[in-house]
Amino acid sequence: MSRSEPLSQEQRESALKDIQGPDRSVIVPAAKALSEDRTTTSRLLELLDVESHVDARHGILYALSWHADLGTWDLMVRILADPQEAPNVRGQAAEGLSYMFYQVKLDSKEAEAAIKALLAALKDPSPEVRYCAINTLGATGHLPLIPVLKEMLADQTPVPGWVGTVGEEASRALDWIGRAHSQRLKDGL
């Protein structure tokens, strides 16, 4: 999801201003615009350091997720594992990892740390966190995760704002994991 050219300076500054604050109806379009402009990664990281409002943090992480910048990997893992963060923020961090997994080797310490955090997230009380963690585990292409995903099929908790239940997402993740594995082999990862 990348634009052919970055936002204009005026559009960028307006979106960076709008993403900060309590009004979700303003944050969402700002996050979408910033998600398409990878030149804003460093500014978004600065905002995330000081922003405490949940919707703003979620919007910032949404934009950063689409940048798929490996420089945000450790941040996404930390946020996912932080029980002080709101569930939608932690879920967004899990989703952000899914967009980057194709760039890391599964035997790396980065992948190991992320998989550990994702596996822990499967026990989270929030169905949104579990759902997003399952989605990302499917994106890893790491076949040893198949038994864990199969166990999650039994979780039929609906997830408001997402499609279906946690278990239905596990079913989709089981379909994806094989394709992701095949792609990793093609890419030499």
Rank of each mutant, 00 (worst) to 15 (best):
residue 136 T to L: 04
residue 47 L to D: 07
residue 68 A to R: 04
residue 41 T to G: 02
residue 70 L to C: 09
residue 138 G to Y: 08
residue 160 P to M: 09
residue 68 A to F: 00
residue 60 I to P: 02
residue 86 A to P: 02
residue 105 K to W: 03
residue 63 A to E: 02
residue 110 E to Y: 07
residue 51 E to Y: 00
residue 91 G to Y: 08
residue 72 T to K: 01
residue 108 S to N: 08
residue 50 V to A: 12
residue 51 E to L: 01
residue 70 L to W: 02
residue 108 S to H: 05
residue 54 V to H: 03
residue 107 D to G: 04
residue 158 P to W: 12
residue 39 T to A: 13
residue 60 I to F: 03
residue 107 D to Y: 00
residue 169 E to Y: 02
residue 168 E to C: 01
residue 149 L to S: 12
residue 77 V to L: 03
residue 144 P to W: 13
residue 39 T to G: 15
residue 142 H to C: 07
residue 165 T to Q: 11
residue 99 Y to E: 15
residue 97 L to G: 07
residue 145 L to I: 14
residue 95 E to P: 00
residue 80 L to S: 05
residue 40 T to W: 03
residue 86 A to G: 01
residue 58 H to Q: 14
residue 38 R to T: 12
residue 125 P to D: 15
residue 56 A to T: 09
residue 77 V to Q: 06
residue 100 M to Y: 09
residue 133 A to K: 01
residue 52 S to P: 00
residue 66 W to S: 02
residue 155 D to Y: 11
residue 107 D to R: 13
residue 87 P to E: 14
residue 56 A to C: 07
residue 84 Q to A: 15
residue 100 M to N: 12
residue 44 L to M: 11
residue 166 V to Q: 11
residue 47 L to V: 07
residue 110 E to L: 14
residue 139 A to G: 04
residue 151 E to P: 00
residue 37 D to S: 07
residue 63 A to H: 06
residue 134 I to G: 05
residue 59 G to Q: 03
residue 49 D to M: 09
residue 158 P to T: 13
residue 139 A to K: 15
residue 162 W to A: 13
residue 151 E to G: 02
residue 63 A to C: 05
residue 37 D to N: 10
residue 147 P to D: 10
residue 45 L to C: 12
residue 43 R to A: 15
residue 40 T to Y: 02
residue 89 V to Y: 00
residue 160 P to L: 12
residue 100 M to W: 09
residue 121 A to N: 07
residue 99 Y to F: 15
residue 39 T to H: 06
residue 157 T to C: 05
residue 89 V to N: 02
residue 59 G to W: 08
residue 95 E to C: 04
residue 58 H to M: 04
residue 153 L to W: 08
residue 89 V to S: 05
residue 142 H to Q: 14
residue 118 L to T: 07
residue 75 L to T: 15
residue 48 L to F: 15
residue 149 L to G: 13
residue 93 A to L: 10
residue 87 P to Q: 11
residue 108 S to R: 10
residue 86 A to Q: 06
residue 85 E to F: 00
residue 160 P to R: 09
residue 154 A to G: 05
residue 141 G to F: 11
residue 86 A to F: 00
residue 62 Y to L: 07
residue 49 D to E: 15
residue 62 Y to R: 02
residue 76 M to K: 06
residue 114 A to G: 04
residue 158 P to A: 12
residue 167 G to N: 10
residue 60 I to E: 09
residue 66 W to N: 14
residue 38 R to K: 13
residue 142 H to V: 11
residue 49 D to G: 14
residue 50 V to Q: 14
residue 36 E to P: 02
residue 88 N to D: 13
residue 40 T to N: 06
residue 96 G to P: 00
residue 143 L to Y: 01
residue 76 M to I: 01
residue 71 G to F: 03
residue 130 R to L: 05
residue 102 Y to G: 10
residue 118 L to K: 08
residue 124 D to E: 09
residue 163 V to H: 06
residue 117 A to K: 01
residue 91 G to I: 09
residue 140 T to P: 08
residue 121 A to I: 09
residue 74 D to P: 01
residue 99 Y to Q: 13
residue 70 L to Y: 06
residue 137 L to V: 06
residue 153 L to P: 07
residue 60 I to G: 01
residue 86 A to L: 04
residue 53 H to Y: 06
residue 96 G to K: 05
residue 142 H to K: 08
residue 61 L to D: 11
residue 58 H to Y: 10
residue 101 F to W: 13
residue 87 P to M: 11
residue 38 R to D: 13
residue 99 Y to T: 02
residue 167 G to F: 10
residue 97 L to S: 09
residue 47 L to S: 12
residue 134 I to F: 03
residue 164 G to L: 09
